[in-house]
């Protein structure tokens, strides 16, 4: 089942254009959204969350257009970014107490399970959390309301290798539960470990949106790793 479908998404800024971005994501798949800084990953994700207004194109979740079904769709998705810190001085339990009132599907049992798994102290404030714990806290909110797709913008940025590894393991667990994960990253090694699909964006255009094996077969050379392939593609793209 297709969880998200994006068709011909365009967004024009004075110094940047997102150019006819199209891809889709199936349930229970992990898609790595890769591209260098400024390639258009965050712009695409912002459009998927209705934070910005595309100049053209359509975004559909669960076969429903985002426009006109925003509230209904947001009940079923979770979002996290490593960079944003909500209410840094409020205790986590207060943020959770308010957040859960918006989700009829919220499960206190799931919340407890993941809070224990992530070793999250809910008496702490977000500003007291490490970068990795902030991402886990946002993930926790998404998981407790039973999100069917997680959209994660640079979740591994700023994390140490151990925290990154833990997070990628969590993605694996979510996949087993049928949750789709779309995570943007510029760290190509993250993809090697857990991605099923590669969505590669460069200078506002999707270069490829393929299962990892097909991506490697189509773009890889000899004994190249995925990281080496993407670096080469990026260099070749720059040279053109």
């Amino acid at each position: 089942m297709s969880i998200v479908q994006i068709e011909g998404l365009c967004k024009n800024y004075p110094s940047f254009t997102l150019d006819r971005v199209s891809f889709s994501l199936e349930a229970g798949r992990i898609a790595g959204f890769i591209g260098r800084n400024g390639a258009g990953k965050t712009t695409t994700i912002k459009a998927m969350l209705n934070l910005i207004h595309p100049n053209a194109g359509e975004i559909r979740f669960f076969d429903l257009p985002l426009i006109g079904n925003e509230a209904q769709i947001k009940q079923r998705i979770g979002y996290s970014t490593g960079a944003v810190n909500y209410y840094p001085k409020k205790p986590i339990k207060e943020i959770v107490a308010v957040t859960k009132t918006f989700y009829p599907t919220w499960s206190d049992a799931d919340y407890k399970t993941y809070a224990e798994l992530f070793e999250l102290d809910e008496n702490k404030c977000p500003r007291e959390l490490s970068e990795g714990m902030k991402v886990k806290f946002n993930l926790l909110l998404a998981l407790a309301h039973g999100a069917e797709i997680l959209i994660l913008d640079e979740p591994t940025s700023g994390l140490d290798p151990f925290a990154r590894d833990e997070l990628l393991d969590v993605f694996g667990e979510l996949k087993a539960r049928g949750v789709a994960v779309l995570f943007s990253t510029h760290i190509t090694s993250d993809l090697e470990k857990c991605a099923d699909d590669i969505i590669y964006i460069s200078r506002g255009r999707i270069v490829a949106a393929l299962p990892k094996a097909e991506f490697t077969a189509q773009f890889g050379r000899d004994d190249e790793t995925l990281e080496e392939t993407i670096l080469r593609l990026e260099k070749e793209g720059r040279a053109k």
Binding site: E70, I73, K74, Q75, Y87, F102
Partner: peptide, 15 residues
């Protein structure tokens, strides 16, 4: 400063 606006619009509500 607490990113309230972003938190709010990401909730399952209309903008």
């Amino acid at each position: 400063e607490a990113n309230d606006l972003l938190y709010t619009v990401l909730l399952p509500i209309r903008k």
